[in-house]
């Protein structure tokens, strides 16, 4: 069995997922994630060495569309749901590279 997920790992994953938690939440999350991952560890009972993975149950491939352009949406419509917009742009806190 894999070692239980640690609080540090939970913090690393939270950053990757752009989430933040206070100290109590982190404890609860670490505990619950540990429990769930232990349960998931059950999968290791199975030898899957020669089993191909399934990412799709469909017997479908090669779905394409023709290269024809249609009208785009009006800019007012596109920006209607924006939390912050200005001069036709979506506005976000300064991005520093």
């Amino acid at each position: 069995m894999m070692p239980r997920i640690t609080m540090d790992e939970v913090l690393r994953v939270a950053h990757l997922a752009r989430l933040e938690f206070d100290d109590t939440e982190i404890e609860v999350f670490t505990y619950h994630l540990g429990e769930i991952l232990d349960y998931i560890g059950k999968l290791n009972e199975l030898d899957t060495t020669d089993v191909p993975p399934t990412s799709h149950v469909l017997p479908v491939c090669n779905v394409i569309k023709t290269d024809k352009a249609w009208d785009s949406y009006a800019r007012e419509v596109v920006l209607e749901n924006a939390p912050s917009a200005e001069e036709g742009h979506f506005k976000v806190p300064k991005v520093i590279d």
Binding site: I5, E9, V13, A17, L37, L43, P52, P53
Partner: peptide
């Protein structure tokens, strides 16, 4: 989101995601 991010993160993909796809 945390569970899924963890399962896909570097070093865990094969143990979790690939394994699940095989099962």
């Amino acid at each position: 989101i945390m569970l899924g991010t963890y399962a896909l993160s570097s070093g865990f993909y094969d143990a979790y995601y690939l394994k699940a796809q095989k099962v």
